[in-house]
Write a protein that binds this DNA or RNA. Sequence first.
DNA 1: CGGTAAGCGAGACGGTACGTCTTGTCTTATT
DNA 2: AATAAGACAAGACGTACCGTCTCGCTTACCG
Lengths: 211, 211, 211, 211
Amino acid sequence: MIEQVRRARGRPRSETARRAILDATLALAAEQGPKGVRMDAIASRAGVSKETLYRWWRSKAEVLLEALAQYGEQTIPVPDTGSLASDLRAFLRATARAADPPTERLLRALAAEAAADADLADVVRDTFLARRRADLGRLLGRAVARGELTAGQAATAVDLIYGSLWYRVIFGIGPLDERWADGVADMIASLARASAEAGVDHPEEAPRPVQ
Amino acid sequence: MIEQVRRARGRPRSETARRAILDATLALAAEQGPKGVRMDAIASRAGVSKETLYRWWRSKAEVLLEALAQYGEQTIPVPDTGSLASDLRAFLRATARAADPPTERLLRALAAEAAADADLADVVRDTFLARRRADLGRLLGRAVARGELTAGQAATAVDLIYGSLWYRVIFGIGPLDERWADGVADMIASLARASAEAGVDHPEEAPRPVQ
Amino acid sequence: MIEQVRRARGRPRSETARRAILDATLALAAEQGPKGVRMDAIASRAGVSKETLYRWWRSKAEVLLEALAQYGEQTIPVPDTGSLASDLRAFLRATARAADPPTERLLRALAAEAAADADLADVVRDTFLARRRADLGRLLGRAVARGELTAGQAATAVDLIYGSLWYRVIFGIGPLDERWADGVADMIASLARASAEAGVDHPEEAPRPVQ
Amino acid sequence: MIEQVRRARGRPRSETARRAILDATLALAAEQGPKGVRMDAIASRAGVSKETLYRWWRSKAEVLLEALAQYGEQTIPVPDTGSLASDLRAFLRATARAADPPTERLLRALAAEAAADADLADVVRDTFLARRRADLGRLLGRAVARGELTAGQAATAVDLIYGSLWYRVIFGIGPLDERWADGVADMIASLARASAEAGVDHPEEAPRPVQ
DNA sequence: CGGTAAGCGAGACGGTACGTCTTGTCTTATT
DNA sequence: AATAAGACAAGACGTACCGTCTCGCTTACCG
């Protein structure tokens, strides 16, 4: 049984234009920083009209969101090694790798939009951030299940971890490199080990040494 | 012989205008959010000309910085009870109290500016953030001295703690209330307790300056 | 094969906006005088953005020039009755009729701009004034051909006649009415008659009585 | 009986400052044209405070008026040789000499102010222009008395002559040199000769006040 | 000769217009 | 129907100039 996709009438959306727009967005962010990411600059660099931009995305923020979905952290796997420490390390190292300088600048541009506009912040939180928070939540959830963390600690940890990421990006505190990933992962993992040793819920789970 | 402070020539700067401007900035942020904080709106609300605004502050961000210094977190004491847990609790609760909704909105407006402009972010980081980071650094430094944390952990903790604060503010993740303060304080303190029990490496190691 | 006029791509310039701008310019000048002719007032009255104004005219003076071309003296015919006296009368009476109060105020606004800016004055002289000077020059040129005036006198007369017009407008010396037109026309014509009687160049041309 | 000039109390007005201001006004006009004549520029160039400027002159136009009175045409004698032609030549040649480039630029700046502001134009007309018009009126009045001109022609001639002067200055039509003076003088004088020959009405008719 | 009142330099101030910039919408002809 | 081109409305930005105000200092008179 062949699934017949109903073809829309008229000229189909140009995939070329879509890619050109997202590429241009990334390139502009990379080369000129958040301020360089202007709708007319994106359009002109992509060889596309502003009309096309606004036909498919309602605002600059939406373009940024899709550009991030394309180039950013979307491919970060959620590891499950049985150890919070190694899970976190792997996850945050992958996160740091995904946050290369161009992507960092996209994040920064997105943060600028969200900080300035509460409605937009809601959207960003409930779509873009929510997915990443859910991933990290699942990872930490396994530690909760093993009794290494309480649910409340896991929730707080999500804020601490992603908070430190955005904080560093927005204010230029420092790079999102392996050192950052390991520092944060170890810190949270030590805590978990401590909790486990203190006999939370599931003492049968042996704590593993961090590194 | 008493050193006579030489009075500057010409009409002295109007303290009234200065206060009116900072008040107007706070009021606009509180009432209309970051987008309401416009230079012309500040000027008109303060009964001041734009020229006066630009005479004393080169950008909106500088006005925000001074308004924050005036109304914001500048009076948060750094407690020293001998216990990291209670020090942190007290410090973060005071921080949460200082971050009332109007102040939160000022912070948000400032974040929007800093995210959009890297040069400005440098200024914000090196003046506004640095003071708060230093306060928290001193607090954590005592725990380092007591062997409850390594210097590296203390540095990471600063990012985690303030990161979570800004993250919640910028993206509207949740309020900066006592629950937040206690959750974060407990989390970091548990870690310290765990580290101390584990006999962490070298307490004599001097704490690295927290950026 | 018919030459097809290539239509420019993109949205065509709005004729509505153009007219609204020129109308608003005239109305503001008429109602509020030269000081009322402000770029933002024109824009707001015309229901147009300032950007549209500056897209098509680089300065207020250019808008005034086009408004004058639209409403001003452009339709003044250059009569040729064979008599300098009646030609001049007809021409200056038509000029006076064209210089109704709203137009006078546009002229005044234009003079203010030109007086303040030498570069602009050059443009005004070489475009707007030049056309009128040429018209009057042709009219007087016929008198020169008839031997009623020397070429030098004709040139001086152009300055005298238009000079008196602008002088009266700018400093509010008096109105540009029929009395003014006749007074100036008769004066120049008497001179021509006198020159002719004195036997300048072409004595065969009989002087005609001034009406 | 000795007229005792009552000396005002307090520090007397600085004549140095007054001269410095008028000099600076002239110099700025000469060097930078009408646009360079700014109140703060005058003050700073004269080494004087704006306070002092506005203490003695209510507006830029008043400063210009006094600067012109100082450097401009104030010393032009009204000749009385018994011949209109030579009187006019002498008067206009002296006028042209007085209108050197720096003075021309002052005139231009004054015209810009007057054109933009009707109230100011009234003042300029009734003070500055009136004196010159009266001088020229007296000169022409003698021709009227001799029956060379009618009173109406004399009045029109004043507009034509001074009109041409301002017209040339404002729009940069051409210089106010001897050629201009002679051209205008000869033109008006020819007319007078013609009228006299034609036996124009009679001298008992009193010359109308020339506005 | 010392008090005092006005003049003065400095420069901050409120007001207002300018010309620029960016966002998001709209209107053409073309594909 | 989607697109490139580009004009458009809205509105904030930062600058410039005007004329006013507020200091502390200076100058010359007058008692």
